[in-house]
Design a protein around this nucleic acid. Structure first.
Lengths: 349, 349
DNA sequence: ATATGTTATCGAAGCGCTTCGATAAATATA
DNA sequence: TATATTTATCGAAGCGCTTCGATAACATAT
C-alpha cells in the first residue's frame, strides 16, 4: 500500500492536518515545519489520492467534454483536434478530461452523461451543436459551462467561437483582389450557425465591393456538407449556365467535392476556376492542386475553452464572455487571377 | 445539494448499508425491500457519487491511456482512432479514460503521469512504442496493464497486436497473383517492431512462392516513415536501375510518397507500377489513383484492449494473453496486373 | 506584569460511500 | 418445541483526505 497523509504526519512529527495545509499551500505554516513535512513527503514518495481529496474537497479535477455522436465519429477529425487541444491544456492545469457523446437530439429522457450524474466533473465543455435541453441540464446542475463553436441567443455561458464571418470575408476579398467578380458560394444546409455565418461573410464581402449578390451563384440546398454534396452542388451550379470563375466553399470537404466536379467537367483549377475552402484540414494538402483554405486553429479552440472553464471553476464570479478566435487565410495552389474571358459553360448532364 | 445515500435510506426506511447492497447488487436482499429502495432512488433521482464510491471501494472506474508525445501529435490520426475506439468501449463498461502522453524516452526522473501517482485509474493501456521504464513502472504499481501495437519479449502483460506479418503476406501475394515478380519494399527505419514484421511478411511471401528476395529491391534506410521518406526511398530504388513493377510500402504515408515519386518520373500507377500501402488511413481515398492498402481496424484495437483490461480489473486471476487482430487487404485503383514487359528504367537525377 | 492581538498547530468532524461482523428474522432439522 | 442453519438487515468502522473551530505559542501594546 502506498503511504497516506498519516504516514507523512508521523514521519514529520506533526498533525495530519498540518500536512494537508502544506500540500494545499494554505495559511500560515512556519518555514521550518514546512520543510520537515516536505522532506517527509519526499522520503516517502507520497502523493495524495485523487479520490480522497475529491470526496473531502468536492473537487474532482476532472472536466467533462461533450460532443454529439455525429461529430465524434466523423472521419474528419475537426472536433477531435479541438478535443486534443483541450486535453493538452487541461493537463497543464492539472485537470483530466472525461469525454462523452450525446445523441444529436438530446431531450427529456435521453441518457445523461454519467459523469454529470455522478458529479465527477468540476465543469463542462460542450463542443459543436448540441441541443438546448443539454445546455439547460448542465446549467441546472450549477456546473460551470463553456461552449465551443456553437451558441444560442438565449445561452448564458462563455463561448469560444470561430471567426467564421471574418474568414469568409477574407476568402472572398482575396478572390476580388485577384480580379474575380463571378464568385459562387457552395455550402450545405446551414443548420449550424457557423455555416450561416460563412454565408453571411460571403455576402457582406461582395456587397462591400459593390458586387451584387446573386442567388444563382449560391448553393446551400444540399442536405449535408460532405464531398458528394459539394460535387452535387457544383453540378447544379454549372447546370444553371450562370458563369463563375471562383468558388468559396463553406468547408474543405465540400471544396474537395467542388474540385472533383470541376475536373469531371474538364475545368482546370485554378486556371479556369479558383477555389477556397474553410477549416484547413489535412485534405487540403492531399488534393491536387493543393487547396487554399481558411485555417481554423482547432487545438486553440479547445485550449481556450479549458482556460476559460478553469478560471470559472476557480473563481465563480468570473464573467460570462465570448471569445472570437481569429482565422487565417492560407493560399495554396487552388487560387489564381481570374481568367481573361469568362469560361464558357459546359452543359451539364 | 443532490441527495445522498442517507436520504435514500431514510425515505425507504432501511439502513444506509442496505441501500448500498441494493446499488451494488450484492448478497441477499428481499425482493420487497429491494423494491422499496429502488423506488426511493427513483423518486429522489439519486446517483451515488463517483468520488465517494471511489474512496470507499478503492475503485475509480477510470482507465489510463498512455501514448508517447510523437504519436499523439502526429497529423495522421492512427493512434487517435485507437484511442477513440477505447473511449467508446470504455463507456460501455462504465469506465472513463484519462489520456496522457509521455516523452518518447521515459526513464528515471521523467515526469510520471499524474493519474498513476494519484492512484486515479484502475488499469492502464499503453499504445505504441513506449519505453521499458514506463512498462516496468506501471507493473511495479501493481496495476493491470494492456499494451497495444507494441510489446517486448520480456513484457509480461496482455497485448493487442496487429497482424502485420499476415497483412504484408496478403499484399505481396496479391501482387504475385497478378503476375508481378519484381516487387519492391519501401519501409522506413524499422525501429518499431510492427514495421519489421511487415518486412518479414514481405520476404516470407516471396520465398513461399519461390521468388528470390533481393536486397536491391528493399529500401528501409530512410530515417522516418513520412511522405518524403517514401518519395526519397523510391528515387533511390529507381536510381539503382533494378526494374520492378510493384511496390509494397510499409505504411500508407510512405506509399503516398512512392506514388508522388513515380508520377514525377512519369510512371503511371497502376499501369507501370502497382502500389499497396498499409494501415488504410483516410489518405488512401484522397490520392489519385486511390491507394490499395492493408486495412487495420484501429478502433477495434482500442476496444479490444479495453475489454481485456476490464476483465483483468474485475478478475485479477485473468491470464496474460496476446491477441493478434486480423487485417484486411483492400484493393482500390493502385494495383493492376503486371505490365507485359518490364518497364525501362528512367534514369534518376 | 497583564491584557490584546497574531500566528502556528492541532484534533475532530465530516465528505458519501463500502464492507464486515453482529444481530435479528425466517427457515430447516432433530 | 428447542436447536441449528440460513437469510436479511443493521450499525459501526473505515477509506484518505479537507476544513474549521479550539488551543497553544509567540509577539506587541499597555
Amino acid at each position: 500500500m502506498s503511504p497516506t497523509i498519516k504516514d507523512v504526519a508521523q514521519k514529520a512529527g506533526v498533525a495530519l492536518s498540518t500536512v494537508s495545509l502544506v500540500i494545499n499551500r494554505k495559511s500560515n505554516v512556519r518555514q521550518e515545519t514546512k520543510k520537515r513535512v516536505e522532506n517527509a513527503i519526499a522520503e516517502l514518495n507520497y502523493h495524495p489520492r485523487r479520490t480522497a481529496r475529491g470526496l473531502a474537497s468536492q473537487r474532482t479535477y476532472n472536466l467533462g467534454f461533450i460532443l454529439t455522436e455525429d461529430h465524434f465519429s466523423q472521419a474528419e477529425p475537426f472536433y477531435t483536434k479541438i478535443f486534443l487541444g483541450s486535453e493538452i491544456e487541461a493537463r497543464k492545469h492539472h485537470y483530466y478530461i472525461l469525454l462523452t457523446t450525446v445523441q444529436k437530439n438530446f431531450r427529456q429522457g435521453a441518457p445523461i452523461p454519467r459523469f454529470l450524474l455522478e458529479r465527477n466533473v468540476d465543469g463542462v465543455i460542450l463542443a459543436g451543436k448540441v441541443s438546448n435541453g443539454l445546455i439547460d441540464f448542465v446549467q441546472g446542475m450549477g456546473l460551470p459551462l463553456v461552449m465551443i463553436d456553437y451558441t444560442t441567443p438565449a445561452c448564458k455561458a462563455s463561448t469560444v467561437l470561430i471567426d467564421n464571418y471574418g474568414g469568409a470575408c477574407a476568402a472572398v476579398n482575396q478572390f476580388i483582389k485577384e480580379g474575380h467578380r463571378d464568385i459562387a458560394f457552395v455550402g450545405g444546409e446551414a443548420s449550424h450557425p457557423s455555416l450561416s455565418e460563412r454565408l453571411r461573410g460571403y455576402k457582406a464581402a461582395l456587397q462591400d465591393q459593390g458586387i451584387p449578390v446573386r442567388d444563382a451563384l449560391i448553393s446551400n440546398a444540399e442536405p449535408y456538407t460532405g464531398v458528394d454534396d459539394g460535387r452535387e452542388a457544383t453540378r447544379k451550379l454549372l447546370g444553371t449556365g450562370v458563369p463563375f470563375t471562383a468558388v468559396f466553399a463553406s468547408n474543405d470537404t465540400m471544396a474537395v467535392g467542388v474540385m472533383r466536379c470541376l475536373k469531371e467537367k474538364n475545368l482546370t483549377v485554378p486556371r479556369d476556376v479558383s477555389v477556397i475552402g474553410f477549416d484547413d484540414i489535412e485534405v487540403c494538402l492531399q488534393v491536387e492542386p493543393c487547396l487554399s483554405s481558411v485555417r481554423v486553429f482547432k487545438e486553440d479552440l479547445g485550449a481556450i475553452a479549458v482556460r476559460r472553464i478553469v478560471e470559472k471553476i476557480e473563481d465563480d464570479r468570473m464573467m460570462v464572455n465570448r471569445v472570437l478566435v481569429p482565422v487565417e487565410l492560407v493560399l495554396r495552389e487552388s487560387t489564381a487571377r481570374a481568367p481573361q474571358q469568362v469560361i464558357q459553360r459546359i452543359v451539364s448532364g
